[in-house]
Design a binder for these strands. Structure first.
Length: 912
DNA sequence: GCTCTGCGTAGAGGA
């Protein structure tokens, strides 16, 4: 039986004498997991072949005894951590039911925390090395790229692709990286071929002697052991790991065995019974000839005993416990000798700079205390985000299909249509959507495609190629797909961490003086006039161009910040500088790039502007600027190096490719939507930076409540007011519409740029006369009082009323495409969408940021009271109210709105 | 409680 629960008190570890001699044991007080909602819970798969495991029910506290080596895992336990003991034994002790481990037991700490196989591999080498890897990421280097290529070719061979064709295709795909590394296609092809020949020879042997069954690159998840990873290959049910590094010893390296053992655990949970593993060292072929037969022997088989598997689970437990507690490893946890470690110097430097305890010791001067405090604060915040991502993994099996669908995290009820083999051995899968349900899943995303359950059923990591009424996917193996689940990724948290690390430990001192307020930003003298009809915009461009360190441009709604950025970049380009243009979202990057291209028209050639990003992320009309990754290495390199302007999201700025680039200046748009480390990812690449944004609009989206919610932009605006300029003339709203936002959020400083803007009304639109509108809608700002239906996240009455308003406007000659409807909740967005015609754009406030419409109708969706975080953040209201150009209609329950002073003032203004 | 975009996935190797 499996016992699962939460540690409820202090753990007692002791030694006792048994008939077998001296034994260690740990007594763990455990609050058993209550199996409250049976219908939604399924039991994890057991390693016990005797039958289905029982989950111990109830919520009483009991004692679980962990014997012998499992006491090691008990040492990291503390109250609140979750514990799973498989194949436990039940016993009665003084009238109480207790449990203990048996010879077949595994003890798993925090089983919902899915640990990567590579993390375990790094951890067994040295826990401190694991930490350093996480902190700085692995930079672009040839051995790693070559290793990846050989793996890809190996996978292709297993899927039946021809060797030379595979090598050519794979080398071509990596053109950009190889170019950056200064490699030529010929030399890499030769190198990969040499490694791949060894694989091919070995595969041939297997084919000659016996019937082999293979599959390649399988992503496996174990909810019992809390491990996830992708096995290179599985041969007759056993893991095969490919290594392109050197190993001249007779036996596999220990960390390689640990890695294979992880896959063995994963395979066992998926129904296998594994006792051997194979490691394939491709460099060994020529060196390691078998003396007797003369055969090439790159493969080393080894047996995997129970002891190794349990050891691996204990390693995983140690790692998971530290991650859950947010502790930083010192290196003392492991037994590696620092003098043999070739990361020793890096380790000592990082330990010295951050003044962290470390087995290798510290060298160098510690960072100033405020910087170390900053590191600790942001490390904690980013790791909190990482734990939120891990909560998402756990939901893959904790939520049932319907719950996930309701949460927009899965598409269920797909109807499998067909599978088709692609060249290169991959598969195209097609399925039909049988309902109109929406989800977070979009084209280009990685998803788990399954025939029913993403973890327990047969499932594959797949890429969404197309998503409309039919779903088209590509995957390594053909799954008869009926369900898709969002596959969470730690990639962005990894990049945030690396960006913070780079800013603090690699950034120059002057930059840090600015970021920490120890020095004031300085400016050159520039007397040129850039924009002659808008003093604030001209000052902003001047500041951006003349900044030696940084400039901060505060751009309220409609003040032309995108134009200002474009103008500033043009001035920089004219000065011969290389510029990075960045923002958090692809949409913002493409918007800014569009404005920039107009400015650069006669300044530089089009091919000197490059957009870096994925095909699915970049907008259709910007695809021609997109940097292709595949092709001849020298061509790819030239295209990027030749670019004087590079545009990319901040996440992409943290990629290995972008980290190889350097710029004179970085301009970051929508900077108030970025976390500090997110902003650093972009500005780390440049000598100077310009942040453009509005901290009175929406803040960064973060999963956990932590220090990431304030943007670097906002902090620097306070810290260095002299480096900032506020754009104060808006080109969007009628004066009436603008008044409230200006007074409430911008100290009354926001004004119309021109009298025509202030006076714009619906009458200006072709074929429209306000005279045909009912009285209440003739004013540019109107309030429509609707009592509401009392539901929480939807309001059918508001939706119906909004549909009427749309019809009224249409009758007055207004195009439906000129009307936008904004609601606070997604549920209300769907509700309204079902009431109004398709060409009226309906969306959440958050998604409307950055755009505008002739007419905006706001649905408040609140009855009775105004409770809820969505209404607490006034920045959201600022965004909603500043989207329209000519007319704004507020629809809501005046009683509810009047309960909050800001909303009450809004009502007075709207009714005034 | 609610809003929700990014990212080649995870792993590739050095000595």
């Amino acid at each position: 039986m499996h016992v699962r629960g939460t540690v409820a008190g202090d753990v007692e570890v002791k030694s006792v004498s048994t008939s077998y001699g001296e034994s260690d044991l740990a007594e763990v007080p455990l609050r058993l997991e209550r199996d409250g909602d049976e219908s939604t819970r399924q039991e994890p798969v057991s390693r016990d072949t005797a039958g289905q495991p029982d989950i111990v029910d109830g919520h009483e506290t009991t004692t679980v005894t962990l014997w012998n080596k499992w006491t090691e895992s008990a040492e990291y336990l503390e109250p609140g951590l979750e514990l799973l003991v498989t194949n436990a034994e039940e016993k009665e002790y003084r009238g109480e039911t207790q449990y203990s481990t048996t010879g077949d037991s595994y003890v798993v700490v925090e089983p919902t925390f899915l640990v990567n196989v590579t993390s375990i591999r790094n951890w067994v080498e040295c826990p401190r090395l694991y930490f350093l890897n996480k902190l700085s990421g692995v930079p672009l280097n040839y051995p790693v790229v070559k290793g990846t290529l050989v793996h890809e070719v190996f996978g292709d061979l297993l899927r039946g692709r021809e060797l030379e064709e595979s090598i050519d295709a794979r080398v071509d795909e990596r053109g950009l990286e190889l170019g950056l590394l200064g490699e030529t296609a010929e030399s890499v092809t030769e190198d990969v071929r040499e490694n791949a020949k060894a694989i091919e020879g070995w595969l041939e042997q297997g084919r000659l002697t016996e019937e082999d069954s293979w599959r390649s690159e399988q992503l496996l998840i174990s909810e019992t052991f809390g491990i996830r990873g992708r096995a290179d290959a599985i041969r007759r049910g056993a893991p095969v790991e490919l290594k392109t590094g050197k190993n001249l010893k007779k036996v596999p390296r220990f960390k390689d065995k640990v890695q294979a053992a992880c896959y063995a655990l994963l395979l066992e949970e998926h129904g296998g019974d594994v006792d051997t593993g194979t490691l394939l060292y491709t460099k060994n072929s020529a060196l390691d000839r078998n003396e007797e037969t003369g055969d090439l022997t790159p493969a080393k088989d080894f047996s995997m005993g129970d002891g190794l598997l349990k050891f691996v689970v204990r390693l995983r437990n140690e790692l998971a416990a530290m991650e859950i507690k947010g502790e930083i490893p010192t290196g003392y946890e492991g037994s590696a000798k620092c003098e043999y470690c070739f990361e020793q110097d890096t380790c000592m430097v990082v330990s010295g700079r951050l003044d962290q305890e470390s087995k290798a010791g510290q060298i160098g001067q510690a960072l100033p205390e405020e910087e170390r405090e900053y590191f600790d604060r942001f490390y904690r915040a980013i790791e909190e985000e990482r734990r939120e991502v891990h909560r998402e993994y756990a939901k893959l099996w904790e939520q049932d299909a319907q719950e996930r669908a309701d949460d927009d995290r899965a598409l269920i009820d797909l109807e499998f249509v067909e599978k088709r083999p692609l060249e290169g051995g991959r598969w195209e899968l097609r399925a039909r959507r049988t309902s109109g349900a929406n989800s977070k899943i979009r084209e280009g995303d990685f998803v788990l495609a399954s025939d029913g359950h993403p973890v327990r059923g047969s499932s594959e990591l797949a890429i969404i190629e197309r998503l409309d009424e039919e779903v088209v996917l590509t995957a390594d193996e053909p799954v008869e797909v009926t369900r898709l689940d969002v596959y969470p990724s730690e990639l962005t948290t990894d990049r945030l961490l690396a960006a913070m690390h780079d800013a603090l430990l690699k950034g120059d001192e002057r930059r840090k003086d600015i970021l920490f307020g120890r020095a004031d930003p300085e400016f050159d003298t520039v007397s040129e006039t850039f924009i002659d009809n808008n003093a604030a915009q001209n000052e902003a461009v001047t500041k951006a161009v003349s900044a030696q360190d940084c400039a901060l441009i505060h751009g309220p709604p409609g003040t032309g910040k995108t134009y200002t950025i474009a103008r500033a970049i043009r001035a920089m380009v004219e000065r011969g500088e290389r510029v990075l243009l960045s923002a958090f979202t692809n949409r913002a990057v493409d918007n800014a790039l569009e404005a920039l291209l107009e400015q650069l028209d006669d300044v530089i050639d089009e091919d000197r502007v490059v957009r870096v990003g994925s095909e699915s992320g970049v907008r259709e009309d910007m695809q021609s600027y997109r940097l292709e990754r595949s092709g001849d290495p020298e061509d790819r390199l030239a295209e990027l190096q030749n670019a004087q302007v590079v545009a990319a999201t901040t996440a992409t700025c943290g990629s290995r490719v972008m980290k190889e680039q350097a710029f004179d200046a970085a301009l970051v748009d929508e900077a108030a939507q970025l976390t500090e480390p997110g902003t650093c990812a972009a500005i780390n690449l440049a000598e100077r930076f310009v942040l453009v944004g509005d901290h009175e609009q929406l803040p960064p989206v973060v999963r956990a409540e932590n220090d990431l919610t304030e943007s670097l932009f906002e902090r620097l605006v306070d810290l260095h007011p002299d480096a900032g300029v506020m754009l104060d003339r808006q080109y969007r709203m009628n004066q009436r519409i603008q008044a409230f936002a200006s007074r409430e959020f911008y100290d009354g400083e926001l004004r119309p740029a021109e009298p025509e803007i202030a006076a714009r009304t619906l009458d200006d639109l072709e074929g429209v006369s306000r005279a045909e509108l009912p009285d209440e809608l003739r004013d540019p700002v109107a309030f429509v009082d609707v009592e509401g239906d009392g539901s929480q996240y939807t309001d059918g009455e508001e939706a119906a009323r909004i549909a009427d308003l749309v019809e009224t406007y249409e009758a007055a000659g207004i195009n439906r495409t000129d009307i936008g409807v904004i609601a606070p909740f997604r549920a209300q967005v769907s509700e309204i969408t079902s009431h109004v015609p398709d060409d009226v754009s309906v969306d959440t406030v958050d998604r409307f940021q950055g755009s505008s419409q002739e007419i905006i109708i706001v649905s408040f969706t609140a009855t009775g009271s105004l409770e809820g975080p969505i209404f607490e953040d006034y920045r959201r209201i600022n965004v909603a109210l500043t989207r329209p150009k000519r007319a704004l209609v507020l629809v809501g329950d005046s009683g509810a709105l009047a309960t909050d002073p800001v909303y009450e003032r809004m009502l007075e203004w709207a009714n005034g």
